[in-house]
Amino acid sequence: MPDVIKTLNGVQVLVFSADAAPITSEPDANALLEQIWAHDASWIAIPVERLSDDFFALHTRLAGTVLQKFVNYRVQVAIVGDLSRHLARSTALNDFVRESNRGGAVWFVPDLDALALRLAGAPASR
C-alpha cells in the first residue's frame, strides 16, 4: 500500500505504508519530513512494522532522535500497531509509551480507528 492522506475527524493524517523501507536512522526521518511537507500534513501515522527494532530499544536513542526531529518541525506523530512484543522486553519503553500518550505530540495507538478516537478527543487507551 502506498502512503496515503486520510482525514480522521477533520484532521489530515499522512499514513505511511508498512511496506516501505524501515526507519533506521535520522536521515530516514529527514526523508519522511520531505513527504510530510509535500502533503501539508500536521499528523503522520507510522506503522510499527516500518520501525526497526532499534527504534524500540531506547538505549539506542533512535526513537528519541527521530521523534524529536518531528516535534521540532511541529509534526505530530502516531505510531500505529501492536507494540506487545516490544513492550514485553522493556519497562522503560512501557513508561515512554505511557508518558507519550499523555501528551499531544507523540501517540502510540493500536490502529487507525484508535487514532481517530484520540483525534476526536477521546482519552488514551494505553
Rank of each mutant, 00 (worst) to 15 (best):
I44R: 00
D3S: 14
A45Y: 03
Q68M: 11
I23P: 00
R126K: 09
V11H: 14
T60E: 06
V11N: 14
A20L: 14
A88C: 03
L62C: 02
N94G: 09
V48Y: 01
A18K: 08
P123N: 11
F96T: 04
L93H: 01
A63Y: 01
T24R: 14
R74Y: 05
W107V: 00
T7F: 07
I23A: 01
V109D: 06
V109E: 02
L62T: 00
F70W: 05
Q76C: 06
R74A: 08
E49D: 14
S90L: 11
E34S: 13
L119R: 05
E49N: 15
A29Y: 02
D40S: 15
D28A: 14
D19I: 09
V106L: 11
W43R: 03
E26V: 15
A41L: 06
T65F: 06
L117T: 06
I23L: 15
R102N: 08
D54G: 13
P22A: 12
L33A: 12
I44C: 05
Q76A: 12
Y73F: 12
E34R: 13
L119C: 07
L8M: 02
A116C: 12
K69L: 15
V109M: 05
S100I: 03
E49G: 10
R85W: 08
R102D: 07
Q68A: 14
R102M: 11
L87N: 01
A122Y: 10
G104S: 14
T24C: 11
G81P: 01
H86N: 13
